[in-house]
């Protein structure tokens, strides 16, 4: 093992068996995509675009995982369920409060309002959970906050059951229906909107983390909380701010998911959360660009698997995602963009 991490650190690559198998696997996946593409190019482009749009959603959720993991090394199991609560909340505002069911200017205005409200809602919940529970466990062994997160996830799911019912509920989209047609490739407008909205959000987030004072405090706290505290950074507030950012991203993902899929269900957060966390790990957990890249990649692979002519089909979707995760852990535990994180063996 040590040889591999040294190879990564040193920049030069050592050709041992693990590396060879890993590269061979990548090559096989490339060949498989090529094979699909030669067989039916339009279909592959179509599913790839849809997959990438889904990937944008995964990226938004993955950011919440990666931000929190980066700063307090906690796998926030409740994050997926927070996303679910956000989608139920958005549906409540759009359909129940404003009764918007079709795409018209009023509906768009309500959408804009709900978008902000959902972000604020999820951010507020995430911060309160942090302050009520995780905050007291900052110095506890790592298992304690993890189990707390599992408990919070159960609580959220139950709130979802009470709020939304135990059966999935279908909701109307207020964004324009129909799709953009380029040749034979059709992309639904809602999917395009997802990408259009995601990009500025990501830019904003990058700006906050890289350029602002608060972002600097976040990076310092992630690097070394004690040293950050000694430098006069209010680490507790910084961590709360990180939770707020992650929650806001989940809220944005929630309303876009609602517009894309048109359903709210109490267990939506579980699967999506797992996929998003895989995306975060794929990109190198703790790395913002990595999370986005991981999300897009997972979306793409999932899209190809579900829709490409030689894919395994939707019933294997989850297995494919997790096989990637396991293969990644074996061949490159640090993720695509992460720094080496292996055990000292």
């Amino acid at each position: 093992m040590s040889s591999m991490s040294q190879a990564v650190r040193g920049g030069g690559r050592e050709w041992n068996a693990t590396n060879v198998v890993g590269v061979a696997l990548l090559g096989l996946i490339g060949l498989w995509i090529l094979w699909n593409f030669i067989d039916s190019p339009t279909q592959v482009i179509q599913v790839a675009i849809l997959g990438l749009c889904n990937g944008a959603l995964y990226a938004l959720i993955a950011l919440g995982y990666t931000l929190v993991y980066g700063i307090i090394e906690l796998i926030n199991f409740a994050h997926g369920d927070l996303f679910m609560l956000g989608s139920v909340f958005s549906a409540m505002i759009i359909s129940d409060w404003f009764g918007q069911e079709t795409s018209n200017p009023t509906g768009w205005a309500v959408f804009a309002l709900t978008f902000v409200a959902a972000m604020a809602f999820c951010a507020a919940i995430n911060v309160s959970v942090d302050q009520l529970a995780y905050r007291r466990l900052r110095n506890a062994p790592k298992l304690a906050p993890l189990i707390t997160a599992v408990g919070v996830s159960f609580i959220f799911q139950n709130v979802g059951i009470i709020w939304n019912g135990s059966a999935p509920k279908s909701q109307n989209a207020v964004l324009p229906g129909g799709s953009l047609e380029i040749g034979d490739v059709r992309v639904p407008w809602t999917y395009l909107f997802t990408v259009i909205i995601t990009i500025p959000l990501l830019l904003l987030l990058t700006w906050i983390v890289q350029k602002t004072r608060q972002g600097k405090a976040m990076r310092a706290t992630a690097q070394d909380p004690d040293a950050a505290r000694l430098m006069g950074i209010n680490t507790n507030r910084t961590i709360a701010f990180t939770f707020a950012l992650g929650g806001a991203m989940a809220g944005a993902a929630a309303i876009m998911y609602l517009q894309n899929n048109g359903t709210t269900r109490y267990d939506a957060g579980f699967q999506l959360g797992l996929i998003a966390f895989t995306a975060a790990v794929l990109g190198g957990v703790g790395n913002l660009t990595g999370a986005v890249l991981g999300g897009l990649l997972i979306g793409l692979i999932q899209g190809l698997n579900d829709g490409a002519p030689h894919g395994l089909g939707q019933e294997w979707s989850q297995s494919v995602v997790f096989s990637i995760l396991i293969a990644l852990m074996v061949f490159r535990p640090s993720g695509i963009l992460g720094s080496p994180t292996s055990e000292k063996v």
């Binding site: 796998i75 797992l274 790990v281 297995s319 997790f322 995760l325 535990p333 994180t341």
Partner: peptide
């Protein structure tokens, strides 16, 4: 999973539990 850090270990076992 043996050489992985605890969180990653949790994740890989979770992956097997899903697959």
């Amino acid at each position: 999973t043996l050489r992985l850090k605890s969180d990653y270990l949790a994740l890989v076992t979770l992956g097997f539990g899903e697959i």
